[in-house]
């Protein structure tokens, strides 16, 4: 087990390294002056020259690459073109905002999706189940930004139940410290993007759980569980659902990818100051250092999530041996 963990961890590091490398060359392939990805063109020529030397941009590409890796290791992402603040500083708070929205939302989506999917399989053939499957399929194929806008239109503008985006009422917390995250105002702002994202992300685990449950119901061990005189509830939740969780866990990495993509959309629609929104803003303003760092962090999140999902699969399925 320890050996497996180590090996799996090593794989993760390699993946991240490959991604960082790709990112380096990608950003240097952008149109225009390659140094423009690091040094703001709006600076005085003299200052530009000084920075060029500071970042080693006058050196050969390979040396630049090594320098870039070294800077990554010490979490030095350079300075924002826009604000001239260190990128790392800007990203920290944004990362927290994203995690606070996406993690609980994905957790709720998975939990609810699995439970509702199991119940749907139990009530197979009923009108409620048919309606549920239809709704989930429709929701899943609807564009997320459209759902978000619809929710804002209905709940924020028409019914005036929730604020229209942002993380807190502007001006309420000039300090932006921990007190902000504990306020009712924050929760009030969190509610709508949380609900929309959860509802949207819930469809996949729900439909998957239902269909694997349905195929599990025909298995011999389910029949035997029934013959043992177990209650129908026990058969479904103790036997069928327990097995149907496996595909749910194996698809978790894929879902995490979607969740990340979804977070970019949700944050944009709800003006939620997270990593995704930061990335979108940075790209539209050609703030390359920030965009690059945001990209990288999102990649790290995805890879790390996949790692966790893999471990989860091993916990759920005794047949997986960490050899």
């Amino acid at each position: 087990m320890a050996g497996y963990l180590l090996r799996r961890f090593w794989h993760m590091v390699l993946t991240l390294f490959a991604m960082a490398t790709l990112m380096f060359f990608l950003f240097r392939l952008l149109p225009g002056d390659p140094t423009a990805t690091v040094i703001s063109p709006s600076l005085y020529p003299k200052a530009q020259e000084a920075m060029r030397q500071q970042f080693g941009l006058d050196r050969p590409l390979f040396e630049q690459y090594l320098l870039y890796l070294r800077n990554l290791l010490v979490l030095d992402f350079g300075f924002s073109f826009q604000t001239n603040r260190p990128v790392f500083e800007m990203i920290q708070g944004r990362l927290l905002n994203t995690l606070l929205l996406i993690l609980p939302s994905m957790f709720a989506a998975y939990l609810l999706g699995a439970v509702i999917g199991a119940i749907a399989a139990w009530k197979r053939g009923s009108a409620g189940e048919v309606g549920l499957v239809f709704t989930a399929t429709a929701l899943q194929s609807a564009p997320l930004f459209w759902l978000g806008m619809l929710a804002i239109l209905l709940f924020s503008i028409k019914l005036d139940l929730f604020p229209i985006g942002h993380i807190v009422t502007p001006g309420l917390f000039p300090e932006q410290d921990w007190r902000m995250y504990l306020s009712a105002d924050f929760l009030h702002h969190l509610a709508l993007p949380f609900l929309v994202n959860t509802l949207y992300q819930l469809c996949f685990p729900l439909l998957l759980m239902r269909s694997t449950m349905l195929s599990t119901i025909g298995e011999d061990y389910i029949e035997l569980a029934r013959m043992k005189g177990l209650s129908e509830r026990r058969v479904l939740f103790g036997h069928a659902a327990r097995n149907a969780l496996l595909p749910l866990a194996t698809t978790l990495p894929m879902i995490l990818g979607w969740a990340v993509a979804g977070s970019v959309v949700i944050e944009t629609v709800f003006s939620w100051p997270g990593l995704g929104l930061l990335m979108v803003e940075a790209i539209s303003r050609a703030d390359y250092p920030v965009a690059q760092a945001a990209f990288l962090l999102i990649a790290v999140l995805t890879v790390f999530g996949t790692f966790i999902a893999d471990l989860l699969c091993g916990l759920l399925d005794p047949r997986i041996v960490y050899a």
Partner: peptide, 23 residues
């Protein structure tokens, strides 16, 4: 349900698949 197993039990056709693999 009370007769199942307590009154009549069954050894199934394929013991291979009759046991739940994850329990």
């Amino acid at each position: 349900r009370s007769v199942r197993w307590a009154g009549i039990s069954m050894v199934t056709q394929s013991a291979l698949n009759a046991l739940n693999p994850v329990l």
